[in-house]
Design a binder for these strands. Sequence first.
DNA 1: CCGGTGAGGTTAATCGATTAACCCACCTGC
DNA 2: GCAGGTGGGTTAATCGATTAACCTCACCGG
Lengths: 338, 338
Amino acid sequence: MASMKEVARLAGVSVATVSQVLRGTKRFTPEVEARVRAAARELGYLPDLRASALRTGRSDIVGVLLPDLSNPYFPALLNALEVAARAAGLLVLVHDSGNEVGLERHALERLASVRVDGLLWVPSDASVAGAKALPRRDLPVVTLDRPLPGRDAVYSDHAQGGRLLARHLLALGRRRVALLAGPAELPSARARRRGFLEAFEPLAPVFEGAAGFTHRLPEPVRRRLRQAVGGFDAVVCPNDAVAIGVVRVLREAGVRVPQDVCVTGFDDIPWAAMMEPPLTTVRQPLAAIGAEAVRLLLERIRAPEREPRQVMLPVELVERASTAPATAAPQEGSEPSP
Amino acid sequence: MASMKEVARLAGVSVATVSQVLRGTKRFTPEVEARVRAAARELGYLPDLRASALRTGRSDIVGVLLPDLSNPYFPALLNALEVAARAAGLLVLVHDSGNEVGLERHALERLASVRVDGLLWVPSDASVAGAKALPRRDLPVVTLDRPLPGRDAVYSDHAQGGRLLARHLLALGRRRVALLAGPAELPSARARRRGFLEAFEPLAPVFEGAAGFTHRLPEPVRRRLRQAVGGFDAVVCPNDAVAIGVVRVLREAGVRVPQDVCVTGFDDIPWAAMMEPPLTTVRQPLAAIGAEAVRLLLERIRAPEREPRQVMLPVELVERASTAPATAAPQEGSEPSP
DNA sequence: CCGGTGAGGTTAATCGATTAACCCACCTGC
DNA sequence: GCAGGTGGGTTAATCGATTAACCTCACCGG
């Protein structure tokens, strides 16, 4: 692959001249500029970004470190981040930590070693919980979704999302709610629950359960849902994936959604709109999150010492067919679906 | 961020020694080795991979260029690729081309400019069709899904998938099939169709339509499906996303799936198992695709001049509830779902 | 006592670009 | 006629690591 030296030789000038012409940092006679460009074109010259990064200290590459690409929320987030990064002229180095602190620490080192300009990071559950896999202090970092003390962070207003759901269900006349919570160590999951409880007052859930964040519900929760059939008229899930699992369990138990029981999710991943029935959920503003995260990261790169910021973005209730007004009397799950 | 020079100074040796100790390429007295390691640890030294890449010519970074991250198949593929790459000690630079030749060409240049060791590439529709956005000849490339002349390629046996579906439907007694095809310029889509037609002989579809590759069906196809209700007892879709759209249209038209009409997909994206009804589809062996692609890429990097290879991987029929045996008489779409 | 060998380090070139500093010729103004 | 610009290039240091080549002893055998 042709280097600047070869371009310089072909054009009959020094490498300095080539560099300066190509970057437009100095003016030359039209004749020389033309010769340089022609030579570059002829050799198919492409600057070696490793070399310029080495010299200038900027690579225009950012790392994105995610806990689990197989969880549908993260690809959606990744997409948003990639779009925002691309718009800012940045390349994206993705890494999946498998939600494991060990691997995560390793990934952080590796990314620091490539000298990415900065890092967009969704910390693993354990990291959030305190088992710190902290990146070097000198690596600009913006955390997503899960704020970390002393770092810039971008996240949605989870509590508000919880409140919106509570109000929505109340407005529909649903008062016997089963509330499933996500991983207890995640502030986002806790905020969703908190917001819900707050706006649901003075009522309280008929029961609560810990469901994690995937569609594979823990056995206790499945059992609980089946046993309590008829005892609740709505299930509030910590995210969309869980909602999918819940709808499935309810269906199997012969419960109609939304007539007998409403189900709500959180995130508005693409599935939500597409499932049967389409899911009422709270939309996280992914595009805005991506844009904001990149903006914050660039600012932090420019001013490493500035006070860290937390940016909270508004969420939005998306009403779909998985929720509907309560009918006259709460019915038993009587008519099994096909 | 500490450099080797500082480590050398702290340890009281030359940078050469530091390099050699840390890489273990030469032996020193235990005493010196200890001093070097201690110094490195104390300074939190991390080698600058840009610099070593510059010197050694290998960065252990591969590019992954995809047409559209918002299409659910690609995140799934990306995940597989990332896992395989990680297992081989490679970092992944993702880039979304938006399925646009212009952006794609730009991306290829950018990736070549960072001097990635190689590229895993799913060419855009247009690139496949001939509007070439070819990467430089000197950049090792493995194409995925969509073979390109003179390049290494990894893809699934799409034709076989088509055949499996045809046989499956025939075995179920479904003979009046509507066949939807994907983008005509994609060999994969064509192979699926071809395989189906071949194994469906001597029968033929009652009608065909061009549906693209997303769940948003073109209006003509929607209309056609609605008008022809009762005239077909199965719809074969070019991929899972389209199948989702089809199920929805059929439902709205009051058709029961699978009783009245079977629907099949292709890919086995995560949704397939989760939708209502769970989708019968053909599974692409993503993990194997990822592993094979990375293997091929590493080989090509090692031996740039070797004859290009095409690796075709076997697919697998996944039977789920969206297909079922034909009942006695083909019924009209009579019982609208809720 | 001398040449040879090997262990243990160092010197210096190199990868490819960037950029401050410098050099030279020519022009301008007084 | 000369100080002082200025336009148009070049020289050379530098970023951080790698590695071939070399240097210096100590030790060994004859």
